[in-house]
Design a protein around this nucleic acid. Structure first.
Length: 464
RNA sequence: CGGGAUGUAGCGCAGCUUGGUUAGCGCGCCACGUUCGGGACGUGGAGGCCCCGGGUUCGAAUCCCGGCAUCCCGACCA
C-alpha cells in the first residue's frame, strides 16, 4: 500500500499533485485562466473512461445526442433555483460578427435548459416516454479557484438527460445511472471505492429535487465528489413545459433526471492511487498496460515477440526499444507515467530464457520464463487492479471515524454522525469550520429514498 | 472580493537589502567522445524586451510611483 501523504505532514500534497500531473505528461495549464491542455497520455486515459462509461450508458438504453454550446440567457431564467445557482459562474458572449447581440448567449455550464426546451417539443404522448438522452461535451463554469482536472474553467464530461411518465420511473433512473453506470466504472475501471449517498438540501444541484452522489476519500484525507445523479421531479418540466397525453387522454407533466461525470475522475484517480514515485494506473484504465523494455539492442527481437504474444492475448502492450537512452531514465519515465507492469529483457535474461518483471504497485522484481509470460500477465493485471481497489478501501476505512456531535469533528478523513443529531444547524456550524456533509446514507449503508428523513447517517469531511 | 506571496532562458531558481564590467546557477535542449542491468560523465554550444509603463540617476533586474498577471489560504463548484 502506498505511503499516505496524510501520515507524512512534511509532504505538500498540492505540490505533489502538480508534480505527478506534469511528470506523467497528463496535462498543463492553458493560456486562458483556469483552462487545461490535456496531453496525449492524459487524453488516452480519458478515452478509456469514455469508452467504459459510454458502453454502460448505451447498455441502459440511452441514445447519444449533441446540443449547442451557446444557450440564450433567457433559458436560464425559466427555473428560479437553476439561474440563481449558475449565474455567478456563467461565461457570457455579448458580441458576435462584430456587433452586440440582441440577447446575450451563455456558454453552457450544463444543458438542462436547452435540452429541456427540445424535450418539450419531442414529448407529446406517454408513448414518447421514457426519453433517454446522453451528450458528450465540454462545458464552461467560471470557477474562482481552478486546479488541473479537479476544477477547471472548461471541462469535458458526459451529461445524461431523461424524461419519464412517473416519479417512480424517474427516481429509478436516477439511482440506476448512479449505481450501474457511474459506480460500476469507478470500481471496475478506475479502482476507486465510493460512498453512494444523497446530498443535503444545502449541497444539492441547483434546481434539483434530490441529488445523489458518489464520494471518495483522497490520500490527503479530503473528499472528492466523483459523479452526481439528479432527480428533478417536475421542476424543469414545469419551467420548459414538458407535458404529454397519458393513456386516458389526460394532460400530464413529465419527471426528469440528469447526471454527469467529468474529467475530474482522472484527478480522483491520481489522488487515490498515486505514490511518491508518481502515477499508478489501474490496469483497466492504463493506455499501456505492459511496457516491454529492451535493455540492449540484442534483446529487441525477443521483446518484439513478447509484445506480439501479449497483444494477441488482449493486453495493451508497448515496446521500448530506445536503447540509445539509458536504462535508468527509461525505467523512471514509465514509472512516472504509471504503467502497471514492465517486462525488461537484457543479455542476462536472454541467456536465462526469462524476462524481468517489475510491478508498479509493489516493490521488487521477479524473473518470469519467456514462455510463461502470455499465460501469467493477464491474471497479474487483474490482481493489480484488485489490489489497488482493496488498498483504497483499507485507506478509507482506516480514515473514517465516528462522532456523536459536530464539535467532535476535527481532522482529516471521513466522520460519520447521526443526521438526526446534526441537522441543518449542525451542518452550518461545520461549514464555518471548513467541513461539509458529503452525503447521507441509511444506517445500513444503503441509499436513502428522496423523501426519507429519519435513520440517516451523515458522512462529513473537508472536500475539494 | 478579503489575507499572504511571487513575476529573471523551455522548466525550477539565485542576484535586489548596499544601483556599477559581458545577468548567473541547476534541469532540459544541440554537437562530439566515453558510457549504458535504476534518473551517466566530460568538452563545446544555442537560448534573456530581468512582467508592463513612467520616474530618480552619469548608470536600474536592483531604488520610487502606477498598472497587469500568476500562485497560496477563504467564499463558489463536476
Amino acid at each position: 500500500m502506498a505511503k499516505s501523504v496524510l501520515t507524512d505532514p512534511s509532504q505538500d500534497f498540492p505540490r505533489w499533485y502538480q508534480d505527478v500531473v506534469a511528470k506523467a505528461g497528463l496535462a498543463e495549464n492553458g493560456a486562458a485562466r483556469g483552462t487545461m491542455i490535456i496531453r496525449p497520455w492524459g487524453y488516452a486515459i480519458w478515452e478509456r473512461v469514455q469508452a467504459a462509461l459510454d458502453e454502460r450508458i448505451k447498455a441502459t438504453g440511452h441514445d447519444n445526442v449533441y446540443f449547442p454550446l451557446f444557450i440564450p440567457m433567457s433559458y436560464f431564467e425559466r427555473e428560479a433555483e437553476h439561474v440563481e445557482g449558475f449565474s455567478p459562474e456563467l461565461a457570457v458572449v455579448t458580441h458576435g460578427g462584430g456587433s452586440e447581440l440582441a440577447e446575450p448567449l451563455a456558454i453552457r455550464p450544463t444543458s438542462e435548459t436547452v435540452i429541456g426546451e427540445a424535450m418539450s417539443r419531442w414529448v407529446q404522448s406517454y408513448r414518447d416516454l421514457p426519453l433517454l438522452l446522453n451528450q458528450w461535451s465540454n462545458v464552461v463554469r467560471w470557477e474562482l479557484r481552478p486546479r488541473l482536472f479537479l476544477r477547471t474553467s472548461e471541462f469535458l464530461w458526459q451529461e445524461g438527460h431523461t424524461a419519464h411518465a412517473t416519479a417512480d420511473d424517474a427516481v429509478a433512473e436516477t439511482l440506476r445511472m448512479l449505481v450501474e453506470a457511474y459506480d460500476d466504472v469507478m470500481a471496475r475501471v478506475l479502482a476507486i471505492p465510493t460512498l453512494r449517498g444523497r446530498k443535503t438540501e444545502r449541497e444539492k444541484f441547483a434546481g434539483a429535487h434530490t441529488t445523489y452522489t458518489l464520494e471518495s476519500l483522497m490520500r490527503d484525507g479530503k473528499a472528492l465528489q466523483m459523479g452526481t445523479s439528479h432527480y428533478m421531479a417536475q421542476n424543469f418540466a414545469k419551467a420548459f413545459d414538458i407535458t404529454f397525453s397519458d393513456e386516458t387522454g389526460g394532460r400530464q407533466q413529465a419527471y426528469t433526471t440528469s447526471w454527469g461525470m467529468s474529467t475530474r475522475v482522472i484527478g480522483g484517480m491520481i489522488m487515490t492511487h498515486g505514490d511518491e514515485r508518481g502515477l499508478r494506473l489501474p490496469p483497466a484504465i492504463a493506455p499501456v498496460q505492459v511496457v516491454v523494455l529492451a535493455i540492449k539492442d540484442e534483446a529487441v527481437e525477443a521483446c518484439r515477440t513478447l509484445v506480439a504474444e501479449l497483444e494477441a492475448a488482449g493486453v495493451r502492450t508497448r515496446l521500448d526499444d530506445a536503447t540509445g537512452t539509458s536504462f535508468g531514465r527509461r525505467a523512471v519515465e514509465w514509472e512516472l507515467k504509471g504503467v502497471p507492469v514492465r517486462l525488461e529483457i537484457g543479455p542476462r535474461d536472454l541467456d536465462a530464457g526469462q524476462a524481468t518483471l517489475v510491478r508498479r504497485d509493489v516493490e521488487g522484481k521477479q524473473a518470469l520464463r519467456l514462455n510463461e509470460v502470455r499465460a501469467t500477465v493477464p491474471g497479474l493485471l487483474d490482481e493489480v487492479q484488485r489490489g489497488l481497489f482493496d488498498d483504497a478501501v483499507t485507506f478509507r476505512d482506516g480514515h473514517t471515524r465516528v462522532a456523536s456531535q459536530q464539535q467532535e469533528v476535527d481532522g482529516a478523513g471521513f466522520w460519520t454522525l447521526p443526521w438526526g443529531e446534526l441537522g441543518v444547524d449542525g451542518e452550518a456550524a461545520l461549514a464555518q469550520r471548513g467541513y461539509s456533509v458529503r452525503c447521507l446514507l441509511r444506517a445500513d449503508g444503503g441509499l436513502p429514498d428522496p423523501g426519507q428523513s429519519d435513520e440517516l447517517v451523515a458522512w462529513v469531511a473537508r472536500a475539494y
